[in-house]
Amino acid sequence: MRFNPKARLDTSRVRDSGRGSGGGRSGGGMSGGGMQIPIPTGAKGGSAVGLVIAVIVFLVLTQCTGGGGLSGLGVPDNPFDLSRVQGDDSGRYDACRTGEDANDSEDCARVAVENSLTDYWSETLPAQSDVGFRPENVMQTFTGAVETGCGQATSAVGPFYCPVDESIYLDTGFFRDVLQQQLGGPAGDFVEPYVLAHEYGHHVQNVLGTMSRVRTQQGPDSDAVRLELQADCYAGMWTANATGTDDAGGEPLILELSEQDISEAIAAAKSVGDDKIQDRTTGRVNPREWTHGSADQRVRWFMVGYTEHSLDACDTFSASRL
């Protein structure tokens, strides 16, 4: 992945809260309303399907609505009051100004990817739907724990999207400590962009109102799986068109995506399939507990988005075969 040195980066939606205070509850999770999301540890006999790089949307929403489930989520009107959840900015991204910085720094590359995702969906969403686009409020990195509109989260949750404050959160150590070391996932420059594109896909679903369609939360054909596979499909859409995205002045943001980049995205999608995670962490595969889809399903839907470039093609909720 190669960024355009002439491109100007916009850091207004990317921030870092540094090391969270309190560290959250034991084992990780989100607090709020007296509830805690059980984040698996990968221990034998435990549920492993939740420990994935994609957001555990149905659990987050259940918590945000006090156990009421996905339907009827009360999301406040913009602009959101994020003062409670954001805290102080560590200044981690202050030096990210150009595409050259993105070529030299993983942090600045994260800013460039966010800029590219925002530019892509700002054009694609209104062009392919009757819904206006709004960017995510914040893409926030943290260490240890973070306060969000959906409650407190620790690193054990993995990267996730909170629909209440419309923000994406990630502890960047997740890619090494969990994805690679615990789940056997790939290393590479395009692994994190794939994850960010997936999480941005959840924001697109939130804007479109798709999250309200989730009723069933486990199983190979469940609505939760359909939601996650659709986010993979949206990630594929952006990946196919990333080199066509521009900065505010019209300069291309990304000059090149290689075959290796695409291979890394596919490898990452495979590594976080429910079947792969279950097998690696518990030694068994139980489709009835799936919440995100199998490795093959995740790769398939990423490639549907990559080849079809269409919201309609990514309609997993109407698909008879996942």
Results as ranks from 00 to 15, higher is better:
K44V: 05
Y194S: 13
T141Y: 03
G72V: 11
I254H: 02
Q63G: 06
G42K: 06
A224K: 06
D77K: 11
D279M: 07
I56H: 01
G67L: 06
G33F: 02
H198M: 08
D261H: 12
S21N: 07
Q230M: 10
S258L: 08
P193N: 12
F302I: 15
H203I: 15
V178Q: 02
R84S: 11
P79S: 03
R176L: 09
R280Y: 01
F302R: 06
T216G: 06
P38L: 14
Y169E: 06
H309G: 05
A268T: 12
T148V: 15
V75I: 15
D312P: 00
G32W: 02
Q278F: 03
N206D: 03
N241D: 13
T124G: 01
A269T: 14
A95H: 04
G91H: 04
Q218H: 12
L82D: 15
E114F: 10
A240H: 09
Q182G: 04
P38N: 13
K44C: 00
P126K: 05
L255P: 05
N4R: 07
L61V: 09
R97N: 02
S310A: 10
V55Q: 00
T124F: 01
V111N: 02
L183F: 03
S17N: 13
G50D: 15
P40T: 13
V111F: 00
N78F: 11
D232C: 07
S258M: 14
H203G: 08
S83H: 14
G201H: 11
S31Y: 06
L311Y: 01
G132A: 12
T282V: 13
G151W: 00
G173P: 03
A127T: 11
S294G: 10
Q217V: 15
A109D: 13
H198N: 09
T281E: 08
E114Y: 11
G32F: 00
P40I: 13
P76V: 11
D232K: 10
H203C: 10
F58N: 09
S294T: 15
G18Y: 01
V52Y: 05
T291Y: 00
R213L: 03
I53Y: 10
T282E: 00
D101C: 06
R2Y: 00
S83I: 15
Q205P: 01
C64Q: 06
V60R: 03
R110F: 07
R15V: 14
L82P: 08
D247T: 12
G249R: 03
G23Q: 07
I37Y: 01
L59W: 03
W290P: 01
F58A: 05
G18P: 02
R215N: 00
S26I: 14
W238A: 12
Q180A: 10
L196I: 15
A153F: 08
T98S: 03
C96F: 06
D130E: 02
S83G: 11
R321L: 05
V285Y: 05
G20E: 06
Q260H: 07
A109V: 14
V60W: 03
R25S: 08
R19N: 04
G68S: 13
A319S: 08
M211S: 00
G34S: 09
A127I: 11
A156Q: 15
Q230N: 08
R13S: 08
